[in-house]
Simulated assay, not measured.
Amino acid sequence: MTYNGDVTPGGAPAVRELDRLTVTKVSVGPMDNNAYLLRCHGTGEQLLIDAANEAPRLLELVADGGLATVVTTHRHMDHWVALEEVVAKTGARALVHADDADGLPIPAEPLRDGNTVRVGDCELEVIHLVGHTPGSIALLYRDPSGVPHLFTGDSLFPGGVGNTEQDPQRFGSLIDDVEHKLFDRLPDETWFYPGHGKDSTLGAERPALPQWRARGW
């Protein structure tokens, strides 16, 4: 089945096979959060982006392949409810941006803009996007055999940037970071995977950037 990123709470995962990496997307309740399990083909090593909720379901996805790392995209509770249990049962490293580390229920290793997180033979670049929270990040995988893949947490969705609670300073920071660190750097075919809901591409969203900035949220 062709991957389209359309998942629902309690529904089947969506699986995307890249040349070196398998991306499995699942939605967990009660807030329809997306969690992403990445598995390196060369080594079998696995990394989870956002242990959002439903720890037993996430552990079932991990199965007997083990889990090396859990990256939390930002400190909001709906993105880490299952973190403590998943880490306790797998021994995985927990990673989060340094500016959001105090919002997690367990200690986590700090990340900063430009850091690299490995999953087996594959590398993810940490991109710091300030505004939704102080330490929100996106993770970029540059597929050597295809298009870039970008995991954006709650900083970028189809239709706009993440919630900044009508704070003009936070909104200005986030829209600037999203425009300059993502849209200005990456091509239209870049596929992005948000923290909730459906995926999109930068090319599909790029024409709306001026409208997003003008509306201010």
Rank of each mutant, 00 (worst) to 15 (best):
N4P: 02
N4Q: 11
D6I: 15
V7K: 06
P9G: 13
G10P: 01
G11N: 06
A14F: 00
V15N: 08
L18E: 13
D19I: 00
L21W: 06
T24V: 14
V26P: 04
M31Y: 12
D32F: 06
A35I: 01
A35H: 01
Y36P: 14
L37G: 14
C40D: 15
H41A: 15
G44Q: 13
Q46M: 11
L47F: 07
L47D: 12
L48Y: 10
L48P: 14
I49V: 15
D50F: 02
A55C: 05
A55T: 05
L61E: 12
G65C: 09
G65L: 10
G66M: 07
G66D: 06
L67A: 03
A68H: 05
V70G: 02
M77H: 10
M77I: 10
V81R: 15
A82M: 03
A82L: 02
L83A: 10
E84K: 14
E84A: 15
V86N: 08
V86F: 03
V87F: 00
A88S: 06
R93I: 01
A94R: 06
A101Q: 12
A101T: 06
D102I: 06
D102L: 08
G103N: 03
P105E: 00
P107V: 07
E109R: 09
P110M: 07
R112D: 10
R112E: 10
G114W: 08
T116S: 10
V117G: 12
V117W: 10
V117L: 09
R118D: 11
D121M: 02
E123L: 03
L124H: 03
I127R: 02
I127S: 04
L129I: 06
V130F: 00
P134E: 11
G135R: 02
G135M: 03
S136C: 07
L140Q: 05
D143S: 07
D143Y: 00
H149E: 15
L150H: 02
F151K: 09
T152N: 09
D154K: 09
S155A: 15
S155Y: 02
L156I: 14
F157D: 13
G159R: 13
V161Y: 00
T164W: 02
D167M: 10
R170W: 05
R170S: 11
G172V: 12
L174Y: 02
I175N: 04
D177Q: 00
V178G: 00
E179L: 08
E179G: 11
H180G: 03
H180Y: 01
L182Y: 01
L182K: 04
D184C: 05
D184G: 03
P187E: 07
E189G: 03
T190Y: 04
W191N: 05
F192T: 11
Y193N: 11
P194T: 12
G195C: 13
H196D: 10
G197M: 08
G197V: 09
G197D: 11
K198M: 11
D199P: 09
G203S: 09
R206W: 07
Q211G: 13
R213K: 15
G216R: 03
W217R: 14
